[in-house]
Computed example of a mutant assay.
Amino acid sequence: MRPRPARYTGVAQALHWITAGLLFFLLPFVWVAENFPPGEVRTFWYLLHESLGISVLLLVLVRITWRFRHPAPADPDPPALRALARINHWGLYAVLIIMPVTGYLMAGNGQPVPFFGLFSLPGLPKNDPLGVLANTIHVTTQFAVYGLVLLHLAGTVWHVGVRRDGLLDRMLPPQDGAR
């Protein structure tokens, strides 16, 4: 029996799973919004998407700060796979910052951006060329999100189904008294 890999901290685990959960809802909300004609229903779904996007940005910034203060546990993979995992993780962090920032540049182009109806982030001065550029980056970067998330999931499936090395346990609370 192999030794269990060291775990991420409970805070890192919680931040990971909350971010994953928000992404699970965030992406479909905009797809739903796009299928409604302009009006209150469409606006509701867009505002929900934007509020979740802002939440993801804040969580990712907290995650990065936490990560620098609490490094990831040692990864038992060979160096090439470790490098691929690091590139994927930092790529995810990057796109999960780029997406909300460009979303804000689009939504806040001349108007405030509501956050779950609690308050509004200030809008920016109207700048159509910046809005078009932000839209282009936002729409293009979504494919990087899909690819990086799929690669992350593929790595997880590989560790669980092929290697059976317990690496997923690093991101889960202890089970059956295991520490």
Rank of each mutant, 00 (worst) to 15 (best):
V41P: 01
R69A: 15
L96V: 05
T43A: 14
G123M: 05
N109R: 06
R86M: 13
I54W: 08
N88F: 00
P125M: 06
F68G: 13
L26R: 08
P73K: 03
Q111E: 15
V145D: 06
A107V: 04
S55K: 11
S51F: 03
R86F: 08
V30T: 09
P78S: 12
I87T: 12
P78D: 13
F116V: 00
L26F: 11
V101K: 02
P114S: 04
I18H: 04
A83P: 03
I97H: 01
H89C: 02
T102M: 08
F24V: 10
G147L: 14
G147H: 05
V56Q: 01
N35R: 15
V95S: 01
I87W: 15
W90D: 07
G21V: 01
Y146S: 02
L124S: 07
G131S: 13
S55T: 15
V95Q: 05
Q142L: 14
N135G: 14
D128S: 09
P71V: 06
L27D: 00
P73L: 07
L121I: 02
V60M: 04
R67T: 11
W17N: 10
G53F: 00
I54D: 01
E40D: 15
L124H: 09
F116Y: 14
V56G: 02
I87C: 06
P28D: 05
R63S: 02
G39C: 06
V41G: 04
E34S: 14
R86G: 07
V132A: 09
T141V: 12
E50W: 10
A134C: 07
L61M: 13
V95K: 00
R86I: 08
L124Q: 15
A134I: 00
P38H: 11
F36C: 05
L92M: 15
R86L: 12
F36K: 05
F24Y: 08
F119S: 02
L58K: 03
V149W: 02
L96T: 10
V60H: 00
H70V: 13
S51W: 09
I137R: 06
L105E: 10
L23Q: 11
A94T: 14
N135T: 14
